[in-house]
Simulated assay, not measured.
Amino acid sequence: MHIVIAGGSGFVGQVLQQQLLNQGHRLTILTRNPSKFQSGKQTQYVEWLAANSQPETQLEKVDAIVNLAGESINGFRWTKAKKQRILQSRITATNEVLRIIENLNPKPTVLVNASAIGYYGMSETATFTEGVNSNASDFLATVVQTWEELASRAEKWEVRTVYARFGIILGKGGGALPLMSLPYKFGIGGRIGSGKQWVSWIHIADVVGLISLAIEQSHIHGPLNVTAPEPQRMDDFGKMFAYILHRPHWLPVPSFAMKALLGEMSEMLLCGQRAVPEKALNASYKFQYPELEGALREILSSKEQQ
């Protein structure tokens, strides 16, 4: 297949590229700086989101598009400017993907558009499958709802559209794990807030596995929870860190301290949602890392994480 990836230079994008290449696919990576990369037999780099760029003129017989582009939600605080960049970057990139699709002939079969389980809002008691509609109005939920509504416009060209709702991604050299494990490495890890908040996590190998599933399986459309089948409470999550790293889990971080340090962004750590990958399980997807202990052992055993 010929697969186009927007946002392919990020953490998920780089791992996805390698997997798709290993599967024998041909890739086109949309980038603002194609001169930084060397195109080859299986991979070409095409400029986009630049003045007068028309990437569609360099795209032939596209089978699938994966849109991962958008400002990272990570950082120290969500300032007004940061929040605007988070939202606007997703709108700008997705609008450009839609414009490209409009000008392609033939059209791609599928668009896999990045999304997030933040769509559901926060809850300590509810379980969120893909069939749950959101009534949440917090910042992340609003961003995701706007993002998905925009991506859904690809369906007017009969392009099957999948919203890959990412959970907390764990992996080597990126994702949430380096920051989350840091207190434990210094021996000061412990419960964050109440500890009862849910962490819907997923190993990076299963992130790219589920994206591949979304590309290949024609019956998958709409929302797809990209999470492991066994979410964990934050306190249990931290205890597993401590167990594997042979570090104590003893120093609580109260909610007020997190709010003072991170402001609105603290909601990502103090609140959560229990998202279950019902569609993936119904499609008989075999998770490489269905349990947290195995996922953390694989990641934390590497020399980079010691």
Rank of each mutant, 00 (worst) to 15 (best):
T129S: 15
V132S: 01
S134H: 03
S137Q: 14
D138I: 12
D138T: 08
L140V: 11
L140S: 07
T142P: 10
V143L: 05
V144C: 02
V144A: 09
Q145R: 11
Q145Y: 11
T146M: 04
T146I: 07
W147I: 04
W147N: 02
E148R: 02
L150R: 02
A151S: 10
A154S: 14
A154P: 03
K156I: 15
V159K: 00
V159N: 01
Y163Q: 13
Y163S: 11
A164L: 11
I168V: 15
G171E: 03
K172R: 13
K172I: 15
G174A: 09
G174V: 13
G175P: 05
A176L: 11
A176Y: 04
L177R: 08
L177N: 00
P178S: 15
L179T: 12
L179E: 15
M180H: 12
Y184I: 01
Y184A: 08
Y184M: 06
K185E: 01
F186G: 04
G187Q: 11
I188Q: 05
G189I: 01
I192R: 04
S194Y: 06
G195N: 05
G195S: 06
Q197D: 11
Q197H: 09
W198A: 09
V199W: 04
S200N: 07
S200Y: 05
S200K: 11
I204H: 04
A205D: 15
D206V: 01
V207H: 10
V208T: 03
V208E: 01
G209D: 04
G209N: 06
G209I: 08
L210E: 02
S212G: 14
E216P: 05
Q217T: 12
Q217L: 12
Q217R: 14
S218T: 14
S218C: 07
H219F: 09
H219C: 14
H219D: 14
G222Y: 10
L224D: 01
T227V: 15
T227A: 08
A228H: 08
A228R: 00
E230A: 13
E230F: 12
E230Y: 08
E230C: 10
E230V: 10
E230G: 08
Q232N: 15
R233F: 10
D236Q: 08
G238T: 01
G238N: 00
K239M: 06
K239G: 02
M240S: 12
F241R: 02
F241A: 05
A242F: 00
Y243G: 03
Y243E: 13
I244C: 14
H246S: 12
R247F: 07
R247P: 07
R247Q: 10
P248Y: 14
V253D: 05
P254S: 07
A257Q: 06
A257L: 13
A257E: 00
M258P: 03
M258F: 09
M258A: 09
K259E: 15
L262W: 04
M265C: 11
